[in-house]
Amino acid sequence: MTKYILKRIAWIFITLWIVATITFFLMKLLPGTPYTNQAKLSADQIRIMNDQYGLNKPLITQYWVYIVGLLHGDLGTSFQFNNQPVTYLISNRIGPSMQIGAQAMIIGTFLGILLGAIAAVKQRTWVDSVATFFAIVGRSIPNFVFAVILQFFLAFKLKIFPIALWDGFSSSILPSIALAMAPLADTARFMRTEMVDVLSSDYIELARSKGLSSWQTVAKHALRNSLIPVVTIIGPMAVALMTGSMVIENIFSIPGIGEQFVKSILTNDYPTIMGLTILYSAALLVIYLVVDILYGIIDPRIRLSTTGGKE
């Protein structure tokens, strides 16, 4: 197990290096300069500025400088936030994004599991239809629509929650709920499908014939075995949620990281593009490792080994 994990960690670093390299060269293909005032700068001025920032050096030299900095934990300084170190920018703005993402995750997965399980147990009844309807609605309506509706009714009209701005826990509730809709729907769908399968298997029949009540059977036997596909989607879902949503953060005026990524690409903010790409990749790779380890806990039949084989 330890050997397996160490090997996976080594691969994480190799993968990150590959991601960093590809991103670096792709990013340099973006037209334009990182200067906000580019429209008014003459070619000469741009050349002088490029000299100052080392952007006139050959690409391979720039790449080398970046990788050496990266190995020392230096992600460079942002252009959008003048002279602000990228590590400072990320560490300052990731907090609110992670908080909302984590809350959305908790709301989404637990309600999703519940909804999916109920739908499966009561399959082909009106309960199932209602649950499926909610799952479809949650998946097909974009989260910003939910955000606007929640903001208008619960905050603007009923004044239960703050409309926007980042001011204490109460201001994180509406964005978390809006963000939770899609994961809720996804989890419910996966959960229902798997659970329907599990409920028709022999050992459930056995449990029932032993006289266990329907709910006991579900809670003790079916739930656990239905969680495998849910765990598979939870990993990437967590990364997507916790790295911030540009739309939700804009609607609720949250000082998060979600928007910075899009904006850094649009403004050619090279160090920020690199920093966030590496962060997202690292988060995804670590989560995959955690998910693989979790499989073993949930289902002992899945054993992790260096050969990666299943028993």
Binding site: Q151, F156, I163, A164, N250, I251, E259
Partner: peptide, 18 residues
């Protein structure tokens, strides 16, 4: 000063006297 990027949020905040 508060950064607000979404115009409808801005309008809601103004109408709520925030």
């Amino acid at each position: 000063v508060q950064v607000i990027k979404d115009p409808s949020t801005a309008l809601n905040l103004f109408q709520s006297n925030k």
